[in-house]
Write a protein that binds this DNA or RNA. Structure first.
Lengths: 204, 204
DNA sequence: TCGAATAGTTACCGACCGGTCACACCTATG
DNA sequence: CATAGGTGTGACCGGTCGGTAACTATTCGA
């Protein structure tokens, strides 16, 4: 058991160093040797902890997603019993991430890059994104907006879109208005219920 | 000169076959041999037309972006002198692409995958996305909405976000509400000017 | 129809890929 | 202090990578 704990401790250290390792190169574009170097270790040690490169990627993504889950707990604790303040705090935090992280969410990038069907990372990505969606939707619902599902998905899309847009056109592209777009969306759903799709004449 | 035209014709055929070639595998995940097979030719012919794999990727992206430019002309022709109808038509067309294309915009995917600085594809991607942004913003402005720049960037982010979100969580994720989100955004900017960020109490 | 330009084929290059092996080296714990 | 569990090192495997050479077959324009 003590050995097990020793190994686990080592893995956590590895994960932390691995977290920002795929950012520059992507997942296919980096070799296991380079990964090992970034993790300040060597290839054999990596292969003693993980069955394969794909397995390693999965575990690294899982680690990242668990760290992100902690963010939500922090968010709820920061404004207890004030979901609207939490929602605004979420926007602010996402805008901060957008400004800080040069390359967006690892999970989202992995979804784009590893799109061959059946890649083991897919279930990690999907579980993470669905969990995020659930929490955001709950937040919107608790905040009492008129259409919580629609607002939640709008904010999700704005967030993902801002990140890929920043990769494509830099920080002076559409992503520069991410925060204002979120605020406008929230504001438009705050008033009772009437201005969603009735003024746009589209059938189906 | 005639030979030049002959070669150019061949290149166009190659491009058309290449267009959907990177969709399944990404750009790093496919070898030149496989690319040649997908283009129904062989590696030597590819290398006689393009200097390198990166060059080939750039040209393929450029071809795709030129095809996309034609879409805008079609859009304007479909509803002459009715920018709001064009805007709604844009939303509908993007929703259709979202439903049809299994993997989103090649240019956006390339931006995510080829994020090493200095990759020659970056200028192609950036030029394309900025051009799209300009046209969308002009459309919003002509449609007479209250904040054309903000609406345009909101729609851009929703579009990019819907695509990556679909890759991450499938068509039942946030992307399922892409069209409604766009319509709500347009609607909220149609009325005079007052509901953008004043109800959300955020300083800075 | 002739000749030049292009396409196809095959084999090949060095480099690197993911992954494994054997073996020496640490280091924490009994 | 002995030892088992973990780490570091370097060589190695077969396969594939991007890219090229040499040569033949085909096609198209004058």
């Amino acid at each position: 058991m003590t050995v097990c704990r020793r190994a686990r401790r080592r893995e956590i250290v590895l994960f932390q160093r691995l977290a920002s390792c795929f950012d520059n190169t992507g997942f296919c574009g980096i070799g296991v040797d380079a990964i090992a170097e970034a993790a300040e270790t060597n290839k054999m040690t990596l292969y003693r902890h993980f069955g394969s490169k794909d397995d390693l990627i999965c575990e690294a993504l899982r680690f990242t997603s668990e760290k992100a889950a902690a963010f939500w707990d922090l968010l709820e604790a920061s404004h207890p019993n004030d979901p609207m303040a939490q929602l605004q705090s979420w926007v602010k935090a996402r805008a901060q991430c957008l400004a800080d992280d040069k390359y967006g969410c690892d999970l989202a990038n992995a979804a784009v890059e590893l799109k061959e069907q059946g890649h083991p990372a897919h279930v990690v990505i999907e579980n993470f994104k669905l969990a995020q969606r659930r929490r955001l939707e709950k937040l919107c619902r608790d905040a009492g907006v008129s259409e919580p599902e629609l607002l939640s998905d709008t904010l999700s899309m704005l967030m993902e879109g801002a990140q890929v847009s920043k990769l494509a056109t830099g920080s002076e592209g559409p992503s520069m208005r991410f925060m204002r777009a979120c605020e406008a969306a929230i504001a438009s759903f705050r008033q009772p219920a009437r201005n969603t799709a009735d003024t746009v004449g589209s059938e189906a």
